[in-house]
Design a protein around this nucleic acid. Structure first.
Lengths: 236, 236
DNA sequence: CGCCAAATTGACCGAGCTCAAAACGAGTGG
DNA sequence: CCACTCGTTTTGAGCTCGGTCAATTTGGCG
């Protein structure tokens, strides 16, 4: 109980700025909404256990999945700007989230000068996530999108459980499809194709990455290892 | 000269917080880069005249267009979080941008409590733009994407030039395609189709919107008029 | 054991990509 | 003023990837 939202620190976001008073722990049943479009609660949330998706429902009733949120990650920042949520957040399983009230956050950030910069980085991170999503969607081939999706999930899972190659997907094939802009059948076929090629082993929602390098290659990503070696002028 | 970046106010972003000292006016030739990936300048930019695109180049040399930036709009916020740019900005025509140094911005925002909230809204706006882009890319039909794209541009153009229905696209068909995840030929065909249906009149990069309502209908957007009537509990 | 949701697999077909050619427009030089 | 060039846009003709429809299998749960 005493560590509360400090997992968020592990997510590279908050360096554990919440001692114990900050947030309540809210339980959510599978399929329950944490917030809906138009809600003006003024709070952000940290996922403790379980997982959520953020969705936008279009005029014609289609559901677009904008993102998935795993333990240790944040959601709800979309309300900071306009004051009310422009997306809906739905639990994918039994989930617990930690509530950080906007009030607390703002007063605290104006008090501590360092936190304000932290906050800026958090925003930057969400912006980067969105860009990454766009980057995936701009890829033409379904296989590439699926490989990129799995690779991204792998990185996020590895933040806690070190270098495990096991993924337990919290979302359905349909959700993946609505996130990647593909039909659910195409997602399923993509998984089986990767399995046939010996890149992954699929058993329902349990996925084991057999060949991370090959996965990266299919996703057209830099081979591995050192992220962003220092720019050239640093050498010599 | 004296109004400098105040057009940004017209874009709904800054309420003219820059008196005269803040930024230099930088000229850019068509095709020139304002910044590249890895640049660590620590500044944001306001478009004065012309237009730019922000792009990300993938491993295999493909160019993904992440956004277009018209006069009065901002770009370069991606460097705020990580400290260095993760995308490249290229001028689509002869362009002038106003530089707002990060230094100025931060010191000013910590001084004025109100500006910090403004800044938050600016971030929110860019996040919304990104979400909107995702939303477009998640649409399955090419026609919907193109209609949405045109409609979005129309709204942005109408911010300055009141209710004009003329668009002068600053970007090529190829750029549009790389923004929408479509082949350039598909974009061209989409335009001609809209023209055949009497929705728009196309002449190269000059586009006239003949039937805004029909355009919205094709883009699967709410009919028109009042954005977001108050939620139900406000009534009665 | 039966029920229902989720996932897989197959067959078909159409939207959109690719390749290719033509039309257009703007700038340049004779 | 015209001829020429180069980039952009349009249009055409095939073919493929992936969407759609449908049947089957799997797995969880009462």
């Amino acid at each position: 109980l005493r560590q509360f939202c400090q997992q968020a620190g592990a997510a590279g976001a908050f360096p554990a700025p919440e001692p114990a008073q900050a947030g309540k722990l809210v339980p959510l049943a599978r399929g329950a909404s944490l917030f809906r479009v138009g809600d003006a609660e003024g709070a952000v949330y940290v996922v403790r256990t379980g997982a959520l998706k953020t969705i936008a429902v279009t005029e014609d009733g289609e559901e677009h999945v904008l993102g998935f949120h795993l333990p240790g990650e944040l959601l709800g920042l979309d309300s900071l700007a306009s004051g009310q949520h422009c997306v809906e957040a739905v639990a994918l399983a039994e989930t617990h989230v930690c509530v950080v009230s906007m009030h607390t956050l703002l007063s605290r950030s104006s008090a501590t000068p360092g936190l304000s910069r932290e906050l800026l980085q958090v925003f930057g991170r969400t912006a980067m996530d969105c860009h990454a999503h766009v980057d995936v969607l701009l890829r033409r081939q379904a296989g590439e999108r699926i490989a990129m999706f799995l690779h991204g999930l792998l990185l996020r899972f590895q933040r806690d459980s070190s270098t495990s190659l096991e993924l337990n997907l919290p979302m359905s094939r349909e959700d993946v499809g609505r996130y990647l802009g593909l039909a659910l059948e195409t997602v399923s076929r993509g998984f089986t194709r990767l399995q046939d090629d010996g890149v992954i082993a699929v058993a329902g929602r349990a996925v084991r990455i057999l060949n991370p390098d090959e996965l990266r290659r299919i996703a057209l990503l830099p081979p591995s290892g050192t992220d962003s070696e220092p720019p050239l002028e640093r050498q010599a």
